[in-house]
Design a protein around this nucleic acid. Structure first.
Ligand code: MN
Ligand code: MN
Ligand code: MN
Ligand code: MN
Lengths: 218, 218
DNA sequence: ATTAATTTTTAGATTAACCTAAAAATATAT
DNA sequence: ATATATTTTTAGGTTAATCTAAAAATTAAT
């Protein structure tokens, strides 16, 4: 059975390796885990002995198939708990991450199965991220960043890329929520800022914000 | 902030010290924690340094006021989570202990407050044990063991003393559940077994079972 | 009051998870 | 190609939580 710390490593390595086909660097893991590279090396060796990570000195690391499935199962728990916190306990979407970070480590298959049923088998968490099923399959969110929209194109806001507290709080303040229909009206050439309409309102967002909003157009 | 292990020690010491006015022995803690006496001594010294336990070599230990309040807060979380598991996720009362043993360590005051509200501010957990309030006050269950009943006396079954899986499973099998009205009909002198009636049914239970059933009479 | 039994503590090791500082390997720049 | 910079690993150390074996204190028995 894995420790909390091992599980956190697996989950972060998983997140990093999804963004690239090459090995994940020791330093990038250290940064994500807020720890030192030497500690990461230590852990990589341990995870490698347990056949959860394929590690070769000085080359990057990647999860083994076994490690990948463990990582996905932790992501699954994390997102189900986040959904519980928002849907049942009325937390805001920017308050749930740290609590889910703890809850994801509770060991009980039966608990997760029952929680999932209690929530009505949700497919997405409060940030619009897909919830893997119990076999580790993930419903890829078929959506595109607002930054890639053409003028006059519109779509439904279905998820964020960055789900940091500060970004989510910004969206709260701007009154932009999942489910909203957004339309790109104009891109200001000077600073690449985007003029957007949602229902009757109009407002400006930075290019950086646009990149972090995912919409389903069609 | 306390570790999971420290929290478990506090909770067990609390349980043991409630049963006596004298100090809690190192060995009894070791037995409850399923560990060695030497490990317990080690931990007692650590908890004593943190002013959570009053420890004097070779004499027993007791929780400090600070330690007692921490212990009660863990009991509170344990019982709220057990209630959640039974009331919302449809677990049976004999399945929830181990999961609550993990959930009780999740750190978030806001979470517990919201969970409590979501459950409708329950006063008792699925085993009939009182849920402390957020100030550490405990509604003492005013009930008496069935073993102390007189013939023809009846009462409502409100809680168990022993809440081991095996005892709870026994009660499931016998179809005895919290809320049932039980009446003592006869005590067999030969083996002190109790003849009980519940609604229309009649059955026998051992004296040991009777001792573990708490009822509110009249 | 001694002796024997039991309980509790200390001494010394181990393991996971971290750290700092130094060494080794790899990548980049001249 | 060589020197410099960066990344990564190793070496050595710390702390929490555990263990076994031995020593010390307490309790029970003669
Ligand atoms: Mn976590
Ligand atoms: Mn999320
Ligand atoms: Mn516990
Ligand atoms: Mn209980």
């Amino acid at each position: 059975m894995l420790s909390h710390v091992e599980e956190n490593y697996l989950k972060e390595i998983y997140g990093l390796q999804e963004a690239t086909l090459r090995g994940v660097s020791t330093n990038s893991i250290a940064e994500k885990m807020q720890t030192k590279a030497s500690s990461v090396t230590d852990m990589l060796q341990r995870l490698s002995n347990k056949d959860l990570v394929v590690y070769t000195k000085y080359k990057g690391s990647r999860l083994s198939e076994k490690g990948r499935l463990m990582a996905i199962s932790i992501v699954r728990k994390h997102r189900l708990w986040e959904t519980f916190l928002v849907e049942k306990l009325n937390f805001l979407w920017d308050e749930v991450h740290d609590i889910a970070e703890q809850l994801e480590h509770i060991k009980s298959d039966k608990l997760i199965k029952k929680l999932e049923a209690f929530l009505g088998n949700p497919k997405f968490d409060p940030h619009g991220h897909p919830i893997p099923n119990s076999n580790g399959q993930i419903n890829k969110l078929n959506s595109v960043s607002l930054a890639e929209f053409k003028i006059k194109e519109e779509g439904v806001f279905v998820g964020v890329k960055d789900s940091s507290d500060s970004f989510l709080k910004y969206l709260n303040k701007m009154n932009i929520a999942i489910g909203d229909t957004l339309k790109l009206l104009y891109i200001e050439p000077f600073d690449n800022s985007f003029l957007i309409s949602a229902n009757t309102r109009q407002f400006n967002i930075s290019e950086n914000v646009a990149k972090n909003l995912y919409l389903r157009s069609e």
